[in-house]
Design a protein around this nucleic acid. Structure first.
Lengths: 338, 338
DNA sequence: TTGTATGCGTTATCAG
DNA sequence: CTGATAACGCATACAA
């Protein structure tokens, strides 16, 4: 009962032309007379013909797909990034094969291989986790290996290597700046909270440490779980109380806010809190959290453009590393300077 | 400088066998002697051979991919669902092609067609929006059309049709129950807030109305934007004040909480608020929002299983509609009954 | 401008 | 158990 899908031969036969001509019409070649084009087009329309992508892929060795690897979509930042990427790529006629890898190296590698075996035209790794911790370079070898086959783009992480392209945020600079401003406002005991040792997290940490040390203050980096209540409890368990907190993401910041509230610390008078990613979480909190915006839309847009330049092999040679600036979006958990 | 990818002929030649034998080894046929199998396997290993998926697809008419269409990933519920689906499908050896369609019908249709043209083995539509509003059946015709080619699964929405399978939540029942409990606790002016007229939203509304009418109270359904501040402002602009709010999602609930706080209404004494989806937003809010959990993990898991049964064509005939129960997760915006 | 013939890499059907 | 060979559907170099 299944209706067979028409192929190029059916169209050719019905239109009284050769398959070559049909192919030319489909691919918009200009070497076809208007008359035959119309004729063929009509038959195509009538049959509802679509070229078989497998056959196309076989010959052309591409199916116009991009592989996207992301640790998890259960994270506002990642999910939003994938959303932007997919829309941008589709706009250029590319489809996306998605793979959620988790955070373990072996899984990352295997997902990467699976995607490569599907002959994607390029690979996008979303998130700083793929850049490793900067210490163990072998943890990113699989990426350089993949880059031998297709261009690899990494969002919010930096890896050096042939054919791998990075888009990173100026995390260090912005955190240094934001921390510095807090210090100028008189804060003396600012803590930095993070859940990972990724490339991105380390940069934020560096920015924090630079600002703190420059002011002659003690630095206090606390590693926490990426979970609201864990953060709250962990902080509650400490005797010392901060008068400022920089969190590596908004979820941690929410935990910090809950801690401050439960500890009876007045926000932002007795404690200032800054989140990261400027996600919906920052706005959901009460008080609403001032958060560093890392311009996801821009990052993704740039990445897509560079992929297209790379794939189309036009004159434009994309640079291997692009840096996007960040900025603090002030809400209720920080005081304004001046 | 590019290293050519080895094909089945290379392997056959090097192993001194025919391509047929190589194919048999690759596909685990039992009609191969142990000796040749080992020999071939060794060569495959050495060359790092992987079958070309395009060629496979050409012959087998499938590339083991499932198309996932979602309106947007910038939504916790959808993103989480896609995450579950992808992981589940991969576990069964299927890859996912992702498409973000937005909410407009023409876009939904076109994304659907694009995916079908990629010869996906099945289609998953994530979200109630694909089920239309139940009034204009033609708005879902494209789905039934797609179902003529591949099985279509819809998450959290119900569409009747040959070869289309739905997994829905017991939205009506749970909302009716939750609203009823609120009424039992003495609430007399409960409002229902929603941003859409989707299948799912309508069911929640029905549940609300049923409970309210049963108690002889007035129903008050308010359509809002799906935006925290819009909700807050819209409610602030009203003269009447509710003593209970049921929100169709957590983001709206957050807006409701912010409204209540700004209006000086004590939560939960003077006003109770219930969200939907039990997302991270519910926990980010202060006070933390009681929210209805629609068991996304379970819904997705069931969907994946049914897809596999369908594709594998084993004896098991999946039912066209499965209903998953929901339950309220109590936090700080509701009082406990009894 | 149009048609012919070939390659793309598998799987599957037959013979052997 | 193994090998030759025919699909699978398209793009394209080469002829006409």
């Amino acid at each position: 009962m299944k209706k067979e899908v028409p192929n190029i031969y059916d169209i050719a036969e019905f239109a009284n032309v050769s398959i070559a001509t049909v192919s030319r019409v489909v691919n918009g070649s200009d070497k076809v007379s208007e008359a035959t084009r119309k004729k063929v087009l009509k038959v195509i329309e009538k049959f509802g013909y679509t070229p078989n992508v497998f056959a196309q892929g076989l010959g052309l060795k591409t199916m116009h797909t991009i592989g996207i690897i992301v640790p998890t979509l259960a994270d506002d930042y990642m999910a939003t990034a994938v959303d932007y990427l997919e829309k941008g790529l589709k706009r250029h006629g590319y489809d996306c094969i998605l793979s959620c890898s988790g955070f373990e190296l072996t899984e990352k590698q295997s997902k990467c291989d699976m995607l490569l075996s599907k002959h994607v035209d390029s690979l996008i790794l979303v998130g700083s986790t793929y850049a490793g911790n900067g210490v163990d370079a072998s943890a990113t070898d699989y990426i350089r290996e993949a880059a031998k086959k297709v261009p690899v783009f990494i969002i919010n992480g930096n890896i050096s290597g042939e054919n791998v392209y990075a888009t990173v945020c100026e995390d260090e600079a912005v955190v240094c700046d934001v921390t510095g401003k807090m210090i100028e406002r008189g804060r003396k005991n600012i803590w930095f909270l993070t859940d990972s040792r990724s490339y991105s997290s380390n940069n934020k940490k560096k920015g924090y440490e630079k600002a703190v040390e420059r002011a002659g203050l003690a630095s206090n980096v606390i590693y926490v779980e990426n979970d609201i209540h864990s953060v709250k409890e962990q902080l509650s368990g400490l005797k010392d109380k901060p008068d400022g907190i920089i969190a590596a993401n908004d979820k941690i910041a929410v935990g910090a806010v809950k801690y401050a509230v439960s500890a009876g610390l007045k926000i932002p008078d007795e404690i200032e809190i800054v989140g990261y990613n400027n996600s919906i979480l920052a706005m959901s909190s009460t008080p609403e959290i001032s958060s560093i915006d890392n311009h996801t839309a821009e990052v993704c847009h740039d990445t897509v453009e560079r992929i297209m330049h790379n794939l189309n092999d036009d004159g434009y040679k994309p640079s291997n590393k692009i840096t996007i600036s960040c900025n603090l979006v002030c809400r209720e958990t920080t005081k304004v300077s001046d």
